[in-house]
Simulated assay, not measured.
Amino acid sequence: MTGLPVRPEFEGRSPYGAPQVPAAHRLNTNENPYPLPDELLADLGAALGAAALELNRYPDRDALDLRADLATYLSRSGTAVTPDQVWAANGSNEILQQLSQVFGGAGRMALGFTPSYSMHPLITASTGGTFVDGHRRADFTIDPDAAVAQVRELRPDVVFVTSPNNPTGTAVALDTITALHDATEGVLVVDEAYTEFARPGTPSALTLLEGRPRLVVSRTMSKAFGMAGLRLGYLAADPAVVDALQLVRLPYHLSSLTQAAARTALAHTDALLATVDAVKHERDRIVAALPGLGLTSVPSDANFVLFGGFADAPAVWQGLLDRGVLVRDVGLPGWLRVTAGTPAETDAFLTALGEVVAAPGLGG
């Protein structure tokens, strides 16, 4: 970018991304490993064909039918959500970007608790805001007292909480979320991209929405629904938040094809979510196997595991890749992250990991 009049806050930054190097087992991007069911593929073809007949026309700019379907899905959890509380966009990243455009921006501050989703500071910078790191304990949990004190001191305009957290995997207690909401004068965004994979008894922040007009819960269809290629994110919040977001959304931001595909997928919710238990089983299988290799992990409510105890994590990453298994180096010394895949992928990962940690200097 030398010689270009790039904004100063982007100088020296690297774009978000995960290495997509050739590997027999790609376990680095937290995708659902299972293909879409045949009955959904058939209905998708019909739905997209019907939508294509009117591609000469703009799509429904408010995505009313899609938002109604998303509200129905969210309400299945036992917390009633109405269509006017729901907004949808091209992936949860666009949701987060729109929130930052409305509630953050130039002269405003966002607070997050790292390590967490690395797009939060990037989106904050892209919208002209300042990101402040709230940090976590050594076990990667949020210290609620320290976090609340920091919120009261800094008075951020946007507070990001990722639950389950990425890259560490653990969900944030509702008491912590409530305390942060009550301490801030800004909006609290709870990023729940992985919530369908949470361990039993782990509640969603959806249960906190009533009476909290500054609380936003962000979701995605990329993970549990196995629709990463669709790029459909959404949120639930007070209707006033949804109204505010429409001030910054681009005209007709969700294509007719995206809306049709998402609605078709939601009509097959049960079939799509049938893979969740299988993924959770492989996640728990990985966690159970790690101590036998002299390694440890962070308790996970997501479809991935942060595992560690390495003297040289980058060397372990390379050793796994040399054996055909691609995992994610998230930049935490001594730690790597692996996506829970199919049983065969778990076999390949555990076999490769056993070989690598047995090599001198790479284990714990």
Rank of each mutant, 00 (worst) to 15 (best):
residue 67 R to C: 15
residue 178 T to A: 14
residue 77 S to E: 15
residue 102 V to H: 04
residue 324 G to A: 09
residue 361 G to E: 06
residue 189 V to Y: 00
residue 284 D to N: 12
residue 116 S to M: 12
residue 314 P to N: 07
residue 161 V to W: 10
residue 247 L to Q: 15
residue 361 G to N: 06
residue 10 F to D: 13
residue 270 D to V: 12
residue 326 L to Y: 01
residue 216 V to K: 00
residue 125 A to T: 05
residue 298 V to W: 05
residue 120 H to M: 12
residue 305 V to M: 02
residue 25 H to M: 05
residue 236 A to M: 06
residue 354 G to F: 12
residue 128 G to I: 04
residue 74 L to Y: 12
residue 244 A to G: 05
residue 55 L to N: 12
residue 67 R to I: 04
residue 162 T to E: 15
residue 234 Y to L: 03
residue 53 L to I: 03
residue 123 I to A: 04
residue 98 Q to T: 00
residue 192 E to I: 06
residue 44 L to V: 08
residue 296 T to G: 12
residue 332 L to I: 15
residue 222 S to P: 03
residue 313 A to S: 15
residue 317 W to K: 14
residue 123 I to C: 05
residue 87 W to R: 03
residue 32 N to R: 09
residue 203 P to F: 11
residue 294 G to V: 07
residue 4 L to K: 11
residue 148 V to C: 07
residue 287 V to D: 08
residue 17 G to M: 10
residue 92 S to K: 01
residue 128 G to P: 06
residue 33 P to L: 11
residue 162 T to S: 15
residue 81 V to A: 09
residue 11 E to Q: 13
residue 246 Q to T: 12
residue 111 L to C: 01
residue 364 G to E: 10
residue 308 G to L: 07
residue 271 A to L: 13
residue 245 L to T: 06
residue 195 T to L: 08
residue 116 S to C: 14
residue 142 I to C: 12
residue 306 L to K: 09
residue 78 G to P: 12
residue 95 I to D: 03
residue 94 E to C: 02
residue 104 G to L: 08
residue 46 A to K: 08
residue 40 L to M: 00
residue 114 T to C: 09
residue 91 G to D: 05
residue 106 A to I: 10
residue 103 F to N: 03
residue 341 G to L: 08
residue 138 A to K: 08
residue 257 L to V: 10
residue 276 V to N: 02
residue 101 Q to K: 14
residue 156 P to A: 08
residue 290 L to V: 10
residue 133 D to L: 06
residue 74 L to D: 02
residue 92 S to A: 10
residue 226 G to E: 02
residue 362 L to F: 10
residue 363 G to H: 12
residue 168 T to H: 08
residue 165 N to H: 03
residue 17 G to T: 11
residue 266 L to Y: 09
residue 100 S to F: 05
